[in-house]
């Protein structure tokens, strides 16, 4: 992971909603929009967007991944930042699109140019928007933080998540045992190797539950759905909240 330089606060951004949020957790996307609009940024959502192509990419079907990725690459015509409320999808666009299109005379350079404009939501809020959350709700609240592995390693998302949570009054992040270990999702891995994936997520649920926190915050819907539904399956009282939704929740009632 390279250290990156950040642009000054822009007037406009694109939101890339991701397919998981689109279909399963749309409120996280709405909350991401709200957080950016709160800072006076105009958020654009090209309606023709769908998915970054990661499922096929990691499954060994590069051609299928390219087809889907290509369909996204012409949607962000203005030179605005592209904000992704998922570290894993952001990592796909930032890290892997250039590799996926390496050698392609048209989409190769396009992928490289797009990659530098892609930011994970928390990263963008903390480093570009720099909001003032000092008037957010102040009552104490303890949460665990889960960072998707690709986001942590490709986008440095854990640090951004911690900074964002630290800017919220009253919020305490409790570290859990083996926090940096994978939750076992791995996209299609969870379907291809359900036994191994199940064993890994079981341990993750236990270590989050071990903090005494009933909720964990994450910027990744894949991990969030994996851990939350695995906890629910076993009747363990642990549930995930998307970072954007959690921040909105803390800002609720804030005097406008």
């Amino acid at each position: 992971m390279q250290t990156r330089t950040y642009p000054p606060k822009p007037s406009n951004v694109y939101l890339f909603g991701t397919c998981l949020i689109d279909l399963f957790v749309p409120q996280a996307g709405m909350d991401a929009v709200r957080l950016m609009e709160r800072e006076g940024v105009s958020v654009h959502f090209p309606q023709d967007q769908s998915c970054c192509g990661q499922p096929a990419y990691t499954s060994g079907d590069a051609e299928a991944a390219r087809k889907v990725a290509r369909a996204q690459m012409d949607l962000f015509k203005q030179d605005w930042p592209i904000v992704v409320p998922s570290g894993s999808c952001g990592g796909m666009m930032h890290e892997h699109w250039p590799k996926l299109f390496a050698g392609d005379p048209v989409y190769g350079p396009k992928a490289v140019a797009l990659a530098v404009r892609v930011f994970e939501l928390a990263e963008f809020i903390v480093n570009v928007l720099r909001p003032d959350y000092s008037r957010a709700r102040a009552e104490p609240c303890k949460v665990a933080l889960h960072t998707s592995c690709s986001a942590r390693r490709e986008m440095g998302t854990r640090g951004h998540g911690l900074s964002l949570l630290a800017s919220l009054p009253g919020v305490e992040v409790v570290e859990h045992v083996r926090e940096s270990e994978c939750c076992g999702f791995g996209g299609t891995f969870s379907l291809r190797h359900p036994d191994i994936s199940g064993a890994i997520v079981r341990d993750k649920v236990d270590s989050i539950a071990g903090t005494g926190c009933q909720r964990f915050i994450t910027a990744d819907c894949g991990c969030m759905l994996n851990i939350s539904t695995a906890a629910q399956h076993r009747g363990v009282g642990v549930a995930g909240t998307h970072m954007a939704s959690f921040v909105c929740e803390r800002l609720a009632g804030e005097s406008a």
Binding site: G17, P26, S190, S197, G198, H233
Partner: peptide
Amino acid sequence: AGWTQHRTPLKPAPRSLHDLL
């Protein structure tokens, strides 16, 4: 598929992010 072996089923939201926006 393998998902519900260790997890509760995934259920789409009533309205997609596309719709809401």
